[in-house]
Every structure is written in C-alpha cells, then in structure tokens.
C-alpha cells in the first residue's frame, strides 16, 4: 500500500480533486450539481459533509463508489484513480450505506450473505467468524440472524445494513443520511456505533448529513456544502462555534430540526 503519510496524521484514503458534476434532463437542460469540489478523507477518521438538502451532498458521495461519475475532476482511492479500477472491485473497498435500509427477502443471515452471493464466493455460515464479527461490531444479537430481515425495526434494519456493508472488510465506508429514517435516540445510538467502528476497524468514514448536531458530535472533520460548492472545511468545533462563511452562519441560525427532508 502506497500511502502518503504526514507525521502525526492518519494517511489519506480518499482524495477528491476539482470535481464538477453536471446533469442533463430530458430536454437536455443542464443543471449544476457540484462545482469544483476538492477534499480528502483520512483513515480512522469520520469526515462529515454537512449542508441543506438539495446542496449536492448525496450526489457527492455517490461519486466515490461510482454510483455516478463526475463530469470533470478526479477521485483517488489510496492514490489510485478510481476510474482505472474495476467498479465491482472498487465497491468492495468502498462500501456504502444508503439512507433507507433496504432488506432483501430472507433472513438477516441471508442479507449478510448477499455480498458473497453477488461475487460468487462461498457464503459465510451462521457460526462463521465473519458473521459474528460484524454482528458484534454493529451491536446486534446473533439471535436475530434467523429472523426475517423485513420484520425488524428500522433501527435494527439500519444496523443490519451497516453489518452487510462491513462484512467484506472495506477500507472506506460511505454513509448517506444513515440516521434520518430513525428517531433521535435510535439515531444517536447508531451514530455512537459509527464512531466505534471507525476507530476499531481503522476505516475512513465519509458521512453525509443535514444534522449538524450529529456531525458535530462524531466527526473529526467537517465540510460545509451548499449550492453545489464547498464553503468551509475544518474541525467541527471551530466551524460550529466560529463559522467564517455567511452560508454556514445562516445554516446554523436556522431551526435545527429539519426532519422530513428528502436527500438530494
């Protein structure tokens, strides 16, 4: 692994360089989703991308596991251009948890086996160590393994979702509004789990959220994105206590609870 390492800092896992994203609708009308986005995410740290919905946050992380591709610019994973990697292999290294947990038909165990099924690899068994490891990581009892995944609570489903993303041992974890479908206490407990996993697994976590409170609590690094552009980056404390941009100041002044927002 060729990783640039500055003294005292964790190595950079993902580096986004001057990315623009344009979309065209049916009438070929152009809309700008992202403009000149550059940032990086380090190993063992949580990088939170915060901002109002419709600002391009979700679109931005979708570029990192190539659910979409940028119009211009480059994204590097451990200094390798992701466009040069096999997208299926890339997604093995860069896992993603979407806003709403989608459970495939079947038991929790079968859901955990899915990634192996897709890759035509031998399926991990109930008592196998991969299954035990991820269930412990996401703090779910292994009694749930035999349960129909669709009968679990949304909070439990989101944990299964996370376990399913972690089971192939990715080095980067993308989280797209992972707590927005949950009530606050459930979301907070899940967020604490993200923190633990990030440190334990030495993962690079990139979290998208409109919830500043949550980001401030668990992130090491904060990026403020609004209207397709990054306006500020830095330590959560610095940004939240003394915002430099008028955009972030305005966002901070708005009522905090923005529930029912759809992701962009």
């Amino acid at each position: 692994m060729m990783v640039e390492k500055t003294i005292g800092e964790n190595p950079i896992m993902v580096s986004v360089e001057h990315v623009d994203l344009l979309r065209y609708d049916r009438q070929r009308k152009e809309s700008t989703i992202l403009t000149d986005i550059s940032f990086f995410a380090r190993q063992g740290e949580i990088t939170a991308i915060v901002g109002p919905s419709g600002g391009g946050k979700s679109s931005l992380i979708r570029l990192i596991n190539r659910l979409e591709d940028p119009t211009t610019g480059k994204i590097l994973l451990e200094q390798e251009d992701i466009m040069r990697l096999d997208p299926l292999k890339l997604r093995q290294r860069v896992a993603m948890v979407l806003q709403k947990p989608f459970m495939f038909e079947g038991t929790v165990l079968e859901n955990l086996q899915r990634p192996f099924l897709f890759r035509n690899e031998p399926l991990p068994a109930v008592e196998g160590q991969e299954v035990r490891r991820v269930m412990e990581l996401v703090r779910l009892s292994s009694d749930l393994l035999g349960r129909d995944a669709r009968t679990l609570s949304v909070g439990e489903q989101q944990r299964v979702n996370l376990a399913r993303a972690l089971i192939t041992e990715p080095s980067v974890l993308l989280l797209d509004e992972p707590t927005s479908a949950l009530d606050r206490p459930t979301g907070d407990r899940l967020a604490a789990t993200f923190r633990e996993i990030c440190s334990l697994q030495h993962l690079s976590v990139i979290l998208v959220t409109h919830d500043l409170r949550l980001a401030g609590k668990i992130a090491d690094h904060l990026i403020y994105l609004e209207g397709a552009r990054i306006h500020e980056t830095g330590r959560p404390n610095d940004l939240l206590t003394s915002p430099a941009s008028s955009e972030l100041r305005r966002f901070l002044a708005e009522p905090e609870d923005r529930e029912g927002e759809s992701h962009a």
Partner: peptide, 16 residues
C-alpha cells in the same frame, strides 16, 4: 431503484 442501488453498492453486477 433502492433495491437495485443497494445491490450495486454491495458489489452486484447490473444483471444481478
């Protein structure tokens, strides 16, 4: 859409 993108995130091919 959600199901398909979830599968893709987990390493599925378009066909799968």
């Amino acid at each position: 859409r959600e199901e398909i993108e979830t599968a893709i995130c987990l390493g599925a091919t378009a066909r799968q």
